[in-house]
Amino acid sequence: MAEIKEKICDYLFNVSDSSALNLAKNIGLTKARDINAVLIDMERQGDVYRQGTTPPIWHLTDK
């Protein structure tokens, strides 16, 4: 899980924002549900936040 978090942070640092599906595909996974639990956990920790569009767009925080 730590490896996936690191990949998410690296990708969002370079791209600035992404949907869960696009993010999953760009870090080597196939479906948004493969990454949603990790994104929600990271959101609780304050590492990422989502804009409430459908589907949500994920961003890194300034943390």
Results as ranks from 00 to 15, higher is better:
41 D>Y: 00
6 E>P: 01
13 F>R: 15
37 A>W: 05
41 D>C: 01
28 G>Q: 03
37 A>T: 10
36 N>T: 13
18 S>I: 00
6 E>A: 11
38 V>M: 04
13 F>G: 15
61 T>E: 05
14 N>M: 10
7 K>W: 05
13 F>N: 15
35 I>F: 02
27 I>K: 08
32 A>C: 11
20 A>W: 03
4 I>G: 05
44 R>E: 11
63 K>V: 00
27 I>Y: 00
7 K>P: 00
58 W>R: 09
51 Q>F: 02
10 D>C: 03
18 S>A: 12
50 R>N: 06
16 S>Q: 11
47 D>I: 15
5 K>W: 05
61 T>I: 01
61 T>C: 08
22 N>L: 05
57 I>V: 11
56 P>A: 10
50 R>W: 02
7 K>A: 07
24 A>R: 03
26 N>E: 14
21 L>R: 12
3 E>S: 10
17 D>G: 15
33 R>L: 12
18 S>G: 05
6 E>R: 07
57 I>H: 10
2 A>H: 10
30 T>H: 09
5 K>S: 05
14 N>Q: 13
61 T>W: 01
33 R>I: 15
49 Y>K: 14
57 I>L: 08
63 K>R: 13
41 D>R: 01
9 C>F: 14
1 M>N: 03
42 M>A: 05
34 D>C: 00
42 M>R: 03
7 K>G: 01
31 K>E: 15
36 N>E: 15
16 S>H: 11
61 T>K: 11
10 D>P: 01
40 I>N: 13
28 G>K: 09
46 G>S: 03
51 Q>L: 11
21 L>W: 12
51 Q>V: 15
36 N>S: 10
26 N>Y: 11
12 L>I: 02
46 G>V: 03
32 A>H: 10
56 P>M: 00
46 G>Y: 00
56 P>N: 00
40 I>D: 11
41 D>F: 00
1 M>Q: 15
28 G>Y: 00
32 A>V: 14
51 Q>P: 01
9 C>R: 15
59 H>L: 03
52 G>E: 11
7 K>R: 09
2 A>C: 06
13 F>L: 15
44 R>Q: 13
49 Y>T: 14
10 D>V: 01
11 Y>R: 07
50 R>F: 03
55 P>S: 08
31 K>M: 09
14 N>K: 15
5 K>A: 06
6 E>Y: 01
41 D>H: 01
21 L>Y: 11
4 I>F: 02
50 R>K: 14
22 N>M: 04
58 W>H: 08
40 I>R: 12
34 D>Y: 02
14 N>Y: 13
45 Q>W: 00
44 R>H: 08
32 A>N: 09
10 D>Y: 05
47 D>W: 09
53 T>N: 11
21 L>M: 13
27 I>Q: 04
62 D>F: 00
10 D>I: 04
50 R>D: 01
7 K>T: 00
29 L>Y: 11
31 K>A: 11
62 D>V: 07
55 P>H: 05
44 R>F: 04
60 L>W: 01
35 I>H: 03
35 I>R: 03
45 Q>M: 08
44 R>W: 02
32 A>E: 14
48 V>L: 04
43 E>L: 00
44 R>D: 10
23 L>G: 06
42 M>E: 09
38 V>W: 01
35 I>K: 08
63 K>W: 09
38 V>A: 15
40 I>P: 06
55 P>M: 02
40 I>Y: 13
61 T>L: 01
61 T>M: 10
3 E>K: 10
63 K>S: 07
58 W>P: 06
11 Y>V: 07
60 L>C: 02
21 L>S: 13
26 N>A: 14
34 D>P: 04
45 Q>P: 00
21 L>F: 10
23 L>I: 15
41 D>V: 00
43 E>Q: 05
10 D>R: 13
50 R>S: 12
62 D>W: 05
1 M>A: 06
55 P>V: 08
9 C>P: 09
48 V>P: 04
13 F>S: 15
58 W>L: 05
4 I>H: 09
52 G>K: 07
3 E>R: 07
23 L>N: 00
35 I>P: 09
59 H>I: 04
59 H>S: 15
51 Q>R: 13
9 C>N: 14
48 V>H: 03
35 I>D: 09
26 N>H: 15
52 G>H: 09
17 D>T: 04
26 N>V: 13
23 L>Q: 00
25 K>C: 07
45 Q>T: 11
34 D>N: 07
28 G>D: 10
44 R>S: 10
46 G>L: 00
57 I>G: 05
62 D>N: 05
1 M>T: 13
9 C>M: 13
57 I>N: 07
59 H>N: 09
21 L>C: 11
41 D>N: 04
12 L>E: 11
48 V>Y: 01
11 Y>G: 06
44 R>T: 12
15 V>S: 11
56 P>G: 07
25 K>F: 00
47 D>E: 15
45 Q>L: 04
59 H>E: 08
52 G>A: 07
44 R>N: 12
5 K>N: 03
37 A>P: 11
61 T>Y: 00
12 L>P: 09
49 Y>W: 12
38 V>K: 06
57 I>R: 11
60 L>E: 09
40 I>A: 14
3 E>M: 03
59 H>Y: 05
3 E>W: 11
20 A>Y: 00
29 L>W: 02
